[in-house]
Design a protein around this nucleic acid. Structure first.
Lengths: 207, 207, 207, 207
DNA sequence: AATGAATGAGGATTCATTCAT
DNA sequence: GATGAATGAATCCTCATTCAT
């Protein structure tokens, strides 16, 4: 039917518009911080009227959260892609810093914004509430990878929850100290180094 | 002379007042974030008139920076204290997470604030400019510890700059994921775990 | 087309709003002085929200400057109107105090504000920078009138730049000492007196 | 008696202190305007504690008024000095622009400040109330000079009140447009020009 | 669907003035 | 006499959000 085609196109355009806004908002949020960014600035960056933003997003907060969701989705999608075909838990763990590095390379803004929110006393909770469903499942799967590796006696029997946190700090830490020029290669080297230290550090010494 | 005694008391009182303000500001900044905190809120927390804050600190910014400086000073002072009498580079490195843990235990607010700033796209630079002189020297000394340990063939010959960064991420990461109740003991356990992994991970395997 | 009509009405309404604000601001500025007037007061006088002022004018300063520009425009427009059809330089000069008197009668506030700014050590420069393009051309034309009259041996060969200044002081001075009731008649009498003295004072005595 | 000598010295010192403050205040007021000048700025310029200003002057307003009084006193003192020995009314009038020029040369700040106040819608009244007793008498005497000259048929029978105002505008106008370098000579030339025009303009043409 | 216009609430900062010493 | 310290009150300006069109 015609109307359905039309509807579809409309819907596609709407999605595109939303993506435009998200991209613009990400750019300004990440360069000025959440509070340092006015909706005016977002509107200007998106080349849209300010009121239009409110047509698509209920509030500034909502916009921020949508950005985050967007990013987390992408990150996990890429991770899943890499995990396809892999069964070894340690191999799976190894992919994480590389996916992180690639993601940082592609969206340094996003990475920094995420980091910023993680450290923000107020926004952190709001973001957490929203993203928790998305993240919790992945975190649990990573924990299971550690559990599995421990079960296979390939790494030391350390508390998996804390292992996950420490691993997380390391991955997030990649984006913290950056000395330009940041190349994909330099990021991969960093990922490699992190993995080397971390895995070596937890590896079960064969007696 | 009397006047000198008087002067001294005045000076002490002034210092005390400044510390009162810094403490109050730290509390609110760390719980509401920098932008989420109004000077009104700081004034109320300090139980002083708002204008009084401006008598002691030129701006909100300046106040923030003073807090940071204060904390960094304390942190490094404690570190130096622990380093007294130590000569072994690895032993020195080992103290760092513990001093971090203690510091976090004592001033979780400060720790979080520091982390928050590190991740803030705008404040980060401002803070960095101000704190750089203080921090740079310490960072260099830590790098030298790695260099020395490498020279002594006790750890692998990895790039010290990146080692320092990774070590830093780990220490800072301690304060990132916290599940109450946070006890000194639980923090020390975390420090221990970090050290275990990190040192193990970089230790030169004796062939 | 409808849209163009709509657009036009919008534009007209916007202009009207701007004029409303300018009029309100002029009233309060001229009665309380620039610094003595808060934007709140302007907003109240304009019966608009304070933020609305900022929607139309970037700052208090900008508002002031816009008022000035407005007034200077009007003043010069009236002057040009009077000059239409006149060719005699002295006749042209003669119109100036009368236009000034009328203008003062119509907008005593504006006149005073202008005078106030002229005398303000700081605002003066800002205002000057903004208004210079408007004013410079007219001042030059007045100077040329003097030059021409001198050339025609109708007035003494005095330095035209200073003549212009002195003439200016006299015109501005009209608004300085005012004893109510100020009628158009009384102002015209004053203009007449000024002209009498000034022109008589510079008239070439026929030998 | 000792005490009286001591007292006198004290009094002299106090006067000196007051003059210091007045001079400092004049400088900043005239360069930043009344509202643009904080008491802090005055204190700094006077190299005194802010509270000290309040020891000598009840308020910022009072300080301003004292400056004005000071200046008016000096101006009139100089005028009186020049008038000594003169009896001709026109000769007396002729001294005024020269005294004005000298005064402007010596204290351009003061001159501008006075002008600024004259034009200020609010301060004007306050200043007027305070200075009126000082000024009124002089103004009256100037008016009498005109009256006398008219009586002697040396100038036209124009309304003396307005003549005085116009003459005043001219004298004040001297300080309005100034093109550096301002030399005593250039000011005197201007005074001469003003007098030439004004006196010529009102001179009774002998038939 | 898109937006220009409007604004209430709030925030950083300044400042004249006071007061205890 | 002199002043460091303290502050209430104001002031300029910003901003997220709404609404009529």
């Amino acid at each position: 039917m015609k109307s359905s085609i039309l509807q579809e196109r409309k819907s596609r355009e709407k999605q595109a518009r939303i993506q435009t806004i998200l991209a613009a908002a990400l750019k300004v949020f990440s360069s000025q911080g959440y509070h340092g960014t006015s909706m005016d600035a977002v509107a200007e960056a998106a080349e849209l009227g300010k009121a239009t933003l409110y047509y698509y997003f209920k509030s500034k907060d909502e916009l921020l959260l949508a950005i985050l969701e967007n990013g987390v989705h992408e990150f996990f999608a890429r991770l899943e892609e890499r995990w396809k075909g892999l069964t070894d838990p340690i191999e799976k763990l190894e992919t994480i810093p590389y996916v992180g590095a690639d993601f940082f390379y592609r969206h340094p803004d996003y990475f920094k914004l995420y980091h910023y929110l993680t450290a923000h006393p107020v926004l952190r909770k709001r973001a957490f509430n929203r993203l928790h469903p998305l993240i919790a499942e992945k975190v649990q799967r990573v924990q299971q990878l550690f559990t599995q590796a421990i079960g296979e006696k390939r790494i030391e029997p350390l508390p998996v929850e804390e292992l996950t946190e420490i691993f997380g700090s390391l991955v997030m830490g990649m984006g913290l100290f950056t000395h330009p020029p940041v190349t994909r290669k330099s990021l991969h080297r960093k990922a490699q180094l992190i993995l080397h230290i971390f895995l070596n550090g937890i590896r079960k010494q064969s007696e």
